[in-house]
Design a protein around this nucleic acid. Structure first.
Lengths: 250, 250
DNA sequence: TGTATGCGTTATGTATACAGTAAAGGTGGG
DNA sequence: CCCACCTTTACTGTATACATAACGCATACA
């Protein structure tokens, strides 16, 4: 215990989990690669017990896969795995939007959504959009979806959506598109904004089916977006999560 | 280490996880109750490390909740949490059915489904149905849903459905109804069978939207079922999972 | 009598030691 | 020269020891 630097501000388990997730998403650990506990101990600074706990959590999160003979490896995903996951998340968000609409939401709780909407509108006024503006866009978009999810007031659903979002799949693939400076990029973001607008309207008017439908369409847009991005692998490295895609597509 | 009986056939972690899950679902550990690691070590026969891993897994599974000051407690659910979870699962199964229908399924892979269907038909011919037949029904029904899920051929979706099913919510609430010998019981099972029939037909004819719709309707039936069962708390103890419902509804 | 503070006990978080098994490499025989 | 078997190595799974923090109880003071 002599030399070991111990950061007491956060638990060792959490520290290890964050560090390992970073390593995976950044591509430092390649898909299919076996994760050595001892190596993880070296790189994270935690001891084996917290590292093991972190590995179990990351497995549950879907980033790792248990090896039958023992240990874990980084999971590899096909392109279809990712598009399916986006559609999956859209379906869950659709349910959340429906719940929100059917159960009713006090006007004042819609405010945060409208703020996000307005802020994104502001960003999209730039053509073409700057890199900094993008970073803001990604944050705002994530916030919009998180708030919307909360409006369902259904803890099990919120939990499940979090699980589906924890996977790299869920990270906004519009990011890639937009960065790639394709003409479609801006258009897709604008259409996405329209979806955001419609879902708020549907919730306000308590139209559950409409709220659900538009969120599912929103996901299909993201899938189209992903396909386009993969076809034009311009700045693919900008979306770290894509490091998880199998190089040889099955 | 002297006295400790070590069963080497399964890992200590898995053993502990199963034992603890049983204790929770059987109601031996009440919702809201803090789980003592040492006590768990006593009852499971594993040592602290595997017990801790099991606790982490059970938390990810949704049965436990981390206490900020440390440790875990058994999670408590409201009636709405459970009905939401059933609807959630139905939504995911709807997506699976749609994927199966849209992507196409070789006729021979539909055989297992049809076998389940026929076997359940056979069971439902009894009026009223016997306790033994019920046990078979529950198994067959679970198998039907599992096979259907597989037909989506979408690992991320299958995984997510498993997660949603791991929760007690997903356990067939028709069980309670039927056991409670209400007249509606048999009717509900029969309607459920009709849904099963329709989803197979829809997949065969590659009607994605119809396949999805019927599975969602199927879930809504289960929710109605649950409500009825809770209103007539006849044999409630027969569904162990319901031990998790908060006594005082929020 | 009620509240606050301090001490003791207990349980969790962390670290490490030990044992068993699987994988890899080398050596010997065919 | 290649294949098979054995040996060695290293890693995982498990157990336990240690430290720290939280909770409860008792006592003292207001």
């Amino acid at each position: 215990m002599a030399e070991r630097e111990v950061d007491r501000s956060v638990s060792q388990t959490v520290k290890a989990q964050l560090a390992l997730r970073d390593q995976i998403l950044s591509g430092a650990l390649r898909p299919g690669e076996r994760i050595s506990e001892l190596q993880a101990v070296e790189t994270t600074g935690a001891s084996r017990t917290p590292v093991r706990m972190a590995l179990v959590r990351l497995e549950e999160e879907g980033l790792l896969e248990a090896i039958p003979s023992g240990g874990f490896m980084v999971k590899a995903f096909s392109e279809r795995d990712i598009s399916d996951s986006i559609e999956l998340r859209g379906t869950l968000e659709g349910l959340a939007a429906r719940f929100a609409a059917e159960r009713g939401v006090p006007a004042r709780e819609l405010e945060p959504l409208k703020e996000c909407l307005a802020a994104i509108d502001e960003l999209l006024r730039q053509v073409p959009i700057s890199v900094d503006a993008f970073s803001s866009y990604v944050t705002l978009n994530a916030r919009f979806h998180a708030v919307l999810t909360e409006l369902s007031r259904s803890p099990p659903l919120i939990r499940q959506i979090d699980r589906a979002s924890a996977l790299p799949f869920a990270s906004p693939s519009g990011f890639v598109m937009a960065q790639s400076a394709l003409p479609e990029a801006q258009q897709i973001l604008i259409i996405g904004q329209e979806h955001h607008r419609v879902v708020i309207d549907a919730i306000e008017n308590r139209e559950g089916a409409r709220a659900e439908a538009v969120m599912r369409e929103h996901a299909r847009l993201a899938v189209r977006n992903l396909r386009l991005a993969l076809r034009n692998r311009t700045h693919l490295d900008l979306l770290p999560a894509l490091a998880l895609i199998k190089t040889a597509t099955d």
